[in-house]
């Protein structure tokens, strides 16, 4: 897995709440058997009219070339609904490294963390401040310090992350490495309960 620590980037503001994983990646694109290439269908039905890449909806933020960056900023309860990890793959494949919201759905948050996509939970007021910034503004994320800052104003907020998950992201470890290193304990557990 990729390592994450400091990210300095502009951002894409998606001012919607309760963005569910069916919007992030509609089910009809879940027929693949690999993890690659989901980015082109990210927010497919919000992005294109008539399911046609030649008909981008101009009002949708991803179709506005004046916004870009590695950070997606969205309203509360982001990633609710289906457990499809394809949602995290699509966001990552599109080019985002960080998703900022005031509230994440549980399964999405785990899926993001398991894919080197950093979900940052900020306060409602900090989120509102970010949404109020102009499109040239940039943000600085430091996982080590657990901070997210608005470069222009210096406004900064600390965010929470599980200490174990933080270590994984900083070093590019995944849970499977950890679990495999505990095989003996797992086998022992099985023996003792029988």
């Amino acid at each position: 897995m990729n390592k994450i620590n400091k990210i300095h980037s502009r951002f894409v503001p998606l001012q919607e709440e309760n963005v569910d994983t069916d919007q992030i990646i509609p089910a009809r694109f879940l027929k693949a058997t690999t993890r690659d290439g989901f980015g082109k269908n990210l927010f497919r039905d919000w992005r294109y009219a008539n399911d046609n890449e030649l008909e981008p909806k101009p009002s949708f933020i991803l179709n506005d070339a004046s916004y870009n960056g590695q950070i997606l900023v969205a309203g509360k309860n982001f990633g609710c609904g289906s457990s499809r990890e394809h949602a995290a793959w699509a966001i990552k494949d599109y080019g985002f490294t960080v998703v900022v919201s005031s509230f994440f759905a549980d399964i999405f948050k785990n899926n993001a963390l398991n894919n080197g996509l950093l979900p940052i939970t900020v306060s409602e007021s900090f989120l509102a401040t970010i949404f109020g910034l102009d499109k040239e503004a940039s943000l600085s994320v430091c996982l080590e310090d657990q901070t997210i800052a608005i470069d222009a104003t210096g406004a900064i907020e600390k965010f929470d992350i599980n200490a174990y998950k933080k270590t994984c992201l900083l070093n590019g470890y995944d849970d499977i490495d950890y679990l495999l290193s505990n095989k003996a304990a797992i086998e022992n557990f099985e023996k003792n309960r029988n």
Partner: peptide, 14 residues
């Protein structure tokens, strides 16, 4: 669970 977690359970039943 997500697919990465499916893989974890495949690998370790945990």
């Amino acid at each position: 669970i997500g697919t990465s977690e499916v893989e974890m359970v495949f690998a370790s039943q945990c």
